[in-house]
Design a protein around this nucleic acid. Structure first.
Length: 870
RNA sequence: GCCUGUGUGGCGGAAUUGGUAGACGCGCGGGAUUCAAAAUCCCGUUCUCUUAUGAGAGUGUCGGUUCGAUUCCGACCACAGGUACCA
């Protein structure tokens, strides 16, 4: 480069330095995990980020996720752990089939091409990954093993079949995923979607409900919010299962009555009606002979299968005309309705309704003019005499669901809600009508999918023998290569020959199961496969995962299924993991968001296609006006993704890593901005400058003393300490703030005395190592500049001198009536009395105390002084 | 609808257990360097009033507890994630 004055261009060039250092790491297989034997005394650390779906391109959200895991992995390695940090591909799923339909490519080809492209991008990020353990879940080796596990679970009685609802597209004759149903219509055909029953495979996850619930509370290194979400999802509730006997003639086959489940037996005196789910066996039987009920069921089936759709749907009901006896009031009967807000999947699929104390019952009662009978008097002052005496609830505008005492409830009157629950249950039990039960919101896991690109369920249907497992020796049941996507529906089912097979038991012609497994199966045990392909001892050594990192959107389903899967594997003798818990530590990170841009004619534009003018945005190519829309999660459809390749090409991988970890706390969303990336790139140069200034400085043996030296050393050690704790606590943004400060401190020291040189070297050496988890390539370059030994990625974490962290003096703010008015500097050892005397002697304080009496002086040593005066 | 979060300057955010609100960065303003620019370095930057000194207000809204609240409690508003076939 040509430069004036003969000075070299003093710049760090990431484009040449980054590949150079990655090659150095590869040369010695630095990031390959050691076997238990090789590891010796080193403790193990299994660091794992949720593996990606190979969508085609990496985006900045991936960079953030994997950069976070890399910080943890590199930090652990520097602290002497034997680290396992693997990577692979969650490769089955719908997008591959959609691509097959749109572009006429095979899902497998599409997937493996995407993997190759994304891996290339991954390599540029400088992540400390052990690629020797890589696999894709669509590899037959992997899904074959998954089939074997399925059969083991089946042996153990954890697998069964039952009917369940799916979204059915009547035009395409195909099952739709919830996200493929838009406003009740199929996304391709536009036809009204209807619910349809299909026989499907299920895992008995509910067998583990109690264990999954009680153990999740003990996962101390999981975020509280995730534990709460899991607990709420499992939804344990104690209540009463009881039957209401028929008043009058009983329907055939149901003579004993209607079984209901309730969590509010204390409100039985407020019962207004009994309601059945539209899918209750009784409802279905009646509908066979009643056209009006059949029509009602058809109306209910128009709502999608998702919980949100069902809950938000307008409440509708059908009066069957039948009546049941009230269990406590002789001669009293209640009407039996069919109501769409009663879910067959929860409890018994039937309820009794107490509109005064349940909001859904209340809404329904108002709509169909059913009685509202208040039976709980709110505790405290909320009790309103008029409300209580009205009796009919005519003046209630909402259900009362809070605590209180029973009223207008016969033998329960005056009892608290909890007491009344127990006594009501006891009375029902005495009468032989029911008993106390525990119910869970959690439902069994439906694993059947009517799709091609997934793991085939390894069973055979034989006319004579029934359901026959595929013999272990015949695994894997491979997906057929030749497959057609030119008509909707399951290609495995349409395949001309694939499903034809001889029955393993009787050798007569039989048919393969054509359902494939839900892709959540694939991600429920991949961490065990990373630990070892097939060695149980090595799996036992690595598991559980010490630090799992992934998006908060997986807080319930993925994590719950994985917790079930490891328990099931343990219980069939496939995993030596006594707790059954796969992830000892969990961190859930936020998403990367970006502004969206839309041209005046309604096209979405990529961020790279627009530029900012003083008061507006324009499309670079055309100069046309562009509107900036919402800042949302990066998605292909809104074209607001940012490709890391461009950033790496412009600023380097380190700057990209640095930016996604700066500013926002890891658990929160972060917005991608160009200026932020530029700022990171500037900082890279600034750091390099600090080290470069030291590179030809004389290594000085001067003693490490003198006021300025101690101050500089103190700053370095304090900041190293701050970086260390921030990493441990997943506060990477704080760690980065400390590194910023540290760099400025070292920069300022360049203006200082020559005597500072030793302290500067020490600080730089510590900084390089603290920098490594964040910007590993730059750290290597800096380490080399100051003559560091070997690779900084292999160097030990700096040791902080605790003696340097202690400060002798402390600054205390002085408040008058809670407002800061002055500050004093006192010795750390000063007593309360000394501090108080000093504070009151401050001239700045006096004017605020003028004409006032000092009521109290609060002295919190090391923190604050507050003078209360009036 | 339900469950779980989040809300602080122009912007992203910091504030270890209830103890100096705005660390650090971006942006912006000013200065140094330069023939000039880029790059770099230094200083300033919550708002309002004030010549300065300084004063007042201020962490989504309203209320409460406390000597003291971004932090704890109650009610509300907005946004985000999940809601069992997106991964």
């Amino acid at each position: 480069m040509k430069a004036g004055g003969g000075s070299m261009a003093l710049r760090y060039d990431p484009q040449s330095a980054e590949p150079k250092w990655r090659a150095e790491w590869d040369k010695i297989s630095l990031f390959k995990a050691k076997s238990p034997a090789q590891a010796g005394d080193a403790p193990k650390a299994y660091v794992l980020e949720m593996f990606p779906y190979p969508s085609g391109r990496l985006h900045v959200g991936h960079v953030r996720n994997y950069a976070m895991g890399d910080v943890v992995a590199r930090h652990k390695r520097a602290k002497g752990y034997n680290v396992l940090h693997p990577m692979g591909w969650d490769a089955f799923g719908m997008p591959a089939e959609n691509a097959a339909m749109e572009h006429n490519t095979h899902p497998g080809k599409w997937t493996y091409q995407n993997i190759a492209a994304m891996k290339k991008q991954f390599m540029k990020l400088g992540l400390s990954l052990d690629w020797s353990r890589e696999f894709a879940t669509c590899d037959p080796d992997y899904y074959g093993e998954q089939q074997r596990l399925f059969l083991k679970f089946m042996d153990k009685g954890l697998v069964y079949q039952k009917k369940a609802k799916v979204n059915w597209d009547p035009v395409d004759n195909t099952v739709l995923a919830n996200e493929q149903v838009i406003d009740g219509k199929g996304w391709r055909s536009g036809a009204e979607v209807e619910q349809r029953d299909l026989v499907q495979w299920f895992f008995r996850i509910t067998d583990y409900a109690e264990d999954l619930l009680s153990e999740v509370q003990k996962l101390e290194r999981w975020p509280e919010k995730v534990r709460t979400m899991q607990a709420n999802w499992i939804g344990r509730s104690e209540g009463l299962q009881m039957r209401f006997e028929w008043a009058g003639e009983a329907p055939q086959g149901h003579e004993t009555g209607v079984e209901i489940f309730t969590t509010r037996p204390d409100t039985l005196y407020g019962a207004s009606f009994v309601a059945l789910s539209p899918d209750h066996p009784l409802t279905i039987e009646w509908a066979e002979s009643r056209e009006d009920l059949q029509a009602f069921r058809a109306e209910c089936a128009k709502v999608g299968t998702s919980e949100a759709d069902i809950e938000k749907a307008e409440k509708i009901g059908f009066d069957t005309g039948l009546r049941v006896k009230h269990p406590f009031i002789d001669g009293e009967t209640l009407p039996v309705w069919v109501a769409n807000f009663v879910l067959m999947g929860y409890g018994t699929g039937a309820i009794f309704a107490c509109p005064a104390h349940d909001q859904r019952d209340f809404d329904f009662a108002r709509k169909y003019d059913l009685p509202i009978l208040p039976v709980v008097k709110p505790s405290g002052e909320e009790a309103d005499e008029a409300w209580v005496s009205s009796g009919q609830g005519a003046d209630m505008d909402a259900a009362y669901t809070g605590p209180g005492t029973a009223m207008q409830s016969g033998f329960l009157d005056g009892k608290s809600v909890d007491e009344a629950k127990s006594e009501a249950i006891a009375k029902i039990a005495d009468a032989g009508l029911g008993e106390r039960t525990v119910n869970y919101r959690l439902r069994d896991w439906g694993v059947s999918r009517q799709r091609y690109w997934g793991c085939p369920i390894p069973v055979i249907h034989c006319e004579g023998c029934g359901i026959v497992p595929v013999p272990i020796a015949d695994l894997p049941v491979k997906l057929p290569e030749a497959v057609s996507f030119d008509r909707p529906g399951n290609p495995l089912f349409h395949h001309p020959t694939w499903k034809d097979v001889d029955c393993p038991t009787c050798a007569k012609p039989a048919q393969r199961e054509t359902d494939t497994l839900d892709t959540f199966n694939d991600s429920s045990w991949y961490f065990a496969r990373f630990a070892s392909v097939d060695d149980p001892a090595e799996r036992a050594y690595w598991l559980p995962v010490d630090q799992y990192v992934g998006g908060v959107e997986h807080a319930v389903l993925h994590l719950l299924y994985a917790r079930f899967f490891t328990r099931a594997m343990r219980d069939v003798g496939e995993l030596d993991l006594p707790s059954g818990e796969p992830f000892a530590g969990l961190f859930t990170q936020g998403m990367v968001t970006h502004a969206t841009f839309k041209s005046d004619n309604g096209r979405w534009l990529q961020p790279s296609e627009v530029e900012q003018k003083p008061n507006h945005w324009i499309e670079t190519a055309t100069g046309e006006n562009v509107t900036m829309g919402d800042i949302v999660k990066m998605s292909k459809s809104k074209k607001n993704t940012v490709d890391p390749d461009e950033i790496i090409a412009t600023f380097g991988a380190d700057a990209a890593r640095w930016f996604v970890l700066s500013d926002s706390p890891p658990e929160r969303d972060v917005e991608w901005t160009q200026s932020g990336a530029e700022g990171s790139a500037r900082f890279v140069q600034r750091v390099w400058g600090v080290f470069n200034a030291l590179s030809d400085a004389p290594r000085d043996d001067a003693p490490m003393e003198g006021e300025a030296t101690v101050a500089l050393r103190r700053a370095s050690h304090q900041l190293a300490q701050a970086v260390d704790t921030a990493i441990e606590e997943f506060r990477f943004n704080s760690a980065i703030a400390s590194i910023h400060e540290w760099t400025s401190v070292l920069k300022k020291a360049e203006q200082g005395d020559d005597d500072l040189i030793a302290a500067r070297f020490e600080g730089a050496s510590m900084l390089a190592r603290c920098l490594t988890p964040f910007m590993p390539h730059l750290a290597e370059e800096c380490w080399a500049l100051i003559g560091g030994e070997g690779l900084v990625s292999a160097a030990a974490w700096p040791v902080v001198d605790a003696g340097l962290l202690v400060e002798d003096n402390v600054t205390l703010p002085i408040q008058v009536n809670g407002k800061r008015r002055a500050e004093i500097s006192v010795a750390k050892t000063a007593t309360k009395d000394e501090i108080e005397a000093l504070a009151l002697a401050q001239s700045a304080i006096a004017s605020f105390l003028d004409g006032k009496d000092i009521k109290k002086v609060i002295v919190v040593p090391g923190r604050i002084v507050n003078i209360v005066a009036s």
